[in-house]
Amino acid sequence: MSGTSVEDLKPGDHACLTFSDNDERLDIVAAFVRDGLRLGQKVLCLTESVSQTALSDELAARGVGIGSAARSGQLQVAASGQFFTPQGSFDPSATIVRWQAQIDQANRDGYGGLRVTGDMCWALRPVGGVADLMEYESRLTRMLAGQNATAACQFDRQCFDTVTLATAADNHSMNVTAVTYHDDALLRICRQHVPTGVRIAGEIDYRAIEPLTLALSEALSLDDHIDVNLTQLRFMDTTTAGVIVQTALGLTGRQRMTVRCTRISFDVLAALGMQEQARVTLTTARHGD
């Protein structure tokens, strides 16, 4: 099933958010949080794979201003388990009741709605009641429709089996995925939401020149500041390095480009004169940063 962009989510939507790696998840979550804060909504992030502190740090590092929202309570980061399995097991009806309480509270507190995103990896454990998860998701879809609330449930494609993922997709009102220009076992080229730009992960060579050129030229037409995230790119050949240099030459007016990459990509781009270009910042990040 094709995906919706996280930026198109509206009140009443119950989205099944799938992602291929943690960096991609955090990018989509950051966009979800950013949009909620901008709209004056109460934002609740339920996290598990990423610690609560790490998630707050990641949001800030990606340029989402969370300081005042966290202090005022507009943004809350909490553990998934606290919301879904407060007594150690999962009770769909009690969870739906908690949802309604959160929506009502957000309205009473004067927020422009409620936004919740939750890491669903707790459901991979043998938790009591987890067999009813999909029935719950289906009930939540019906319950949220028409309410001033948006939910995005995070399902890791690397952890959940394909049958569960397909069932999850059916029981939500839509799927949210990264906007993808290329996706196979070796290479993934996605639109990056926060900061805006393009994310290229895996290994890239001349065979992917078309999707790479498309991704970069769309960024060039959309963004004032293009963040080219190559931190998870293990290999880049001369041809694709040349496309990135060419894109930088196409920057106009106030446009800027930041390229974040591994040391070897840094060496390749630097040898092609990337550092000397006035509108470009070239920086390194180690694998896994």
């Binding site: 001369t238 040349g242 240099v245 060419q246 030459l249 092609l272 990337m274 270009q277």
Partner: peptide, 9 residues
């Protein structure tokens, strides 16, 4: 090579 020029890159 000149930036952007593919020759002998």
């Amino acid at each position: 090579p000149e930036p952007g020029s593919p020759a002998s890159r």
